[in-house]
Design a protein around this nucleic acid. Structure first.
Lengths: 344, 344
DNA sequence: TTGAAAGCGGTACCAT
DNA sequence: ATGGTACCGCTTTCAA
């Protein structure tokens, strides 16, 4: 395994010159640079990253902390991050921080403290005070996808807006019995679900409609289970459902089908995400593109790395409504109304 | 940021002793060790990993290469790997190697060559000759999940067996028109699907039954689309479907429901995976636990790292059949037959 | 434009 | 059991 010294010798220059030629920092005669580069290539020279890191203090590595890897949103964000890092020659070190686990504690207390990265991307982390403090203590730039509650750079969906938009869509179709499916409450549970629930509640209240909220585990099977429960009871059954995310919405659609409730003629369903399955289920939803959020966050971080003076930004995304075939006017509406009320 | 030298000074010992006390290598008086440890802790000392790597040649980091992050199998494997590495204090560097992309080329030609890891885990990689050569050239232990075609350590599902077992299950129920859904052919496409298709074909042939294979993109929407096509044509419609994986199987079940074909009374469906959605769809399937495959592979790799003499193993897993409610005897079978023929 | 040499922060050998 | 010191391989200042 040849080091830079071997390359220098073979090219007939000093280590210093070889380093300059290879890194592009400092003056080197064009001819020299070329010769060194060629020799290095021929010898199959690959710089030792630990030596370079030790000398420069930079790792050319970015850390990514996220609580789930196997959920659509997170996997997509991760792919987006990976794509940009790959282009930029940065490695990506992944830290899995599942809420409430010993592993998460170790990630914050041990792993991150090692600073084996130049910067960090936190995805949907919802850190508590202690964790936030650790994050800040690292002293490296942090950008987050989904708010994190401090002054770091952020890329996020405007959740409140998305929920308002979705609710408005249903109200405009003529619905009055609209139930929000998912999350815990406005004051507890993941921030994302709280913001969406809140957007729904405000819109309903402003329209003089009654708010109804049914909890559901935030996953496809969770939405299915909750919807089976809700829709099975004719007393409680609404004419429209706003789910906290597409996974829950799709679970609900599957539940409705099993119960023989036609969507959208007897029940409208809206989600938030534009999940990869949304099209297959003709789901009306609000688009958030997690992949491009990951890409944006990464670009923001890389920008800060190359110019520490750069101010951290806060990018808020207004989701676009995608109307498919899971929403229609409520049953009994004269067919002159607006909308795409085609029966499935 | 205090270094080991500061710790040594504060504890009144030499750098060497401090290092020994902190790493646990070599003799140190118990009292000394304790004092050094305490001082280090008080000072918030965190060793520089690049310095340590440079000195020891070991990174305490494991690389993971996989072609997809957003598919169930891969995400699960990744979580399993992450879990074991976290326990062992290893970092995890992720390399996304999507087939046919420029990014993949760079991963193999540039990123992996930097050897910023002590060992590598390749998941479902299906490397071509060039890529395999690069992998070997790295000169670090490699363990793969899903075969890789060389002499590395492997943890994998016995795909041929899984398909045979699934096919046998359907044959025992009395089915004769069984179609395999997914994959490309026995000689092309991903190895996994080829092996499963092959297991199906042999079992069918041995039973004197006719082989029918319908291609499908290997995803839930893919299975849905392919099944809509197949089941929509009464001429071609079989009484049972064996899907190359649960995602395809579930797509097919959804398609069947949409077409008004009751599962399992008019159509039996078997998958391979035991996907997180399998239970919700009452899917009969062969269980493979990707999470534990990831964990096993990681333990195998860590074992090789601490004892390079250790022989690489080849762990092959025989999937267990989980009978749920997506399989039943074919329509028209007298009800005295064996099986779990409950109509959905 | 190039070279010599001093680190970067640990580890581990060799003495003591 | 502990200390002195020579590396690990690269970057970067300073002098030439």
């Amino acid at each position: 395994m040849s080091g830079i010294e071997d390359v220098a010798r073979a090219a007939g220059v000093s280590k210093a010159t070889a380093s300059r030629a290879l890194t592009g920092h400092g003056y080197v005669a064009a001819a020299t640079r070329e010769r060194v580069a060629r020799v290095a290539h021929e010898m199959g020279y690959v710089p030792s990253s630990s030596a370079a890191s030790l000398a420069t203090g930079r790792t050319r590595n970015v850390g990514v902390v996220m609580p789930y890897l196997n959920r659509w949103f997170f996997a997509e964000v991760l792919e987006g991050i990976q794509e940009v890092l790959l282009e930029s020659g940065y490695d990506l070190t992944l830290y899995d921080a599942k809420p409430g686990t010993e592993g998460r504690r170790r990630v914050f207390d041990d792993f991150l403290a090692r600073k084996r990265f130049d910067g960090l991307i936190a995805v949907g982390l919802e850190p508590d005070d202690h964790e936030l403090e650790r994050l800040v203590a690292i002293g490296r730039p942090v950008v987050s996808v989904v708010a994190i509650g401090d002054n770091a750079g952020v890329v996020r969906l405007d959740d409140e807006y998305a929920a308002r938009r979705a609710t408005t869509h249903l109200i405009e179709l003529g619905h009055t019995k609209i139930t929000f499916l998912g999350g815990v409450s406005v004051t507890s549970g993941p921030h994302v679900d709280r913001a969406r629930l809140s957007g729904y509640q405000r819109t309903m209240t402003e329209a003089g409609l009654t708010v109804t909220h049914v909890r559901s585990e935030v996953s496809l099977p969770g939405g299915y289970a909750a919807a089976v429960d809700l829709l099975g009871d004719p007393e409680r059954r609404p004419t429209a459902l706003l789910a906290t995310c597409d996974e829950v919405a799709i679970g609900a659609i599957i539940a409705a089908r099993r119960l023989g409730i036609p969507v959208p003629s007897a029940l409208s369903v809206v989600g938030i995400d534009n999940h990869e399955f949304a099209e297959m289920f003709s789901l009306t939803t609000l688009e958030q593109s997690p992949r491009s959020q990951g890409m944006q966050a990464t670009r923001m971080l890389l920008g800060q790395l190359e110019d520490p003076a750069r101010v951290a930004q806060d990018v808020s995304i207004q989701a676009r409504l995608i109307v498919r075939n899971s929403t229609a006017p409520p049953p009994g509406t004269p067919s002159v109304t607006v909308g795409v009320g085609v029966t499935s």
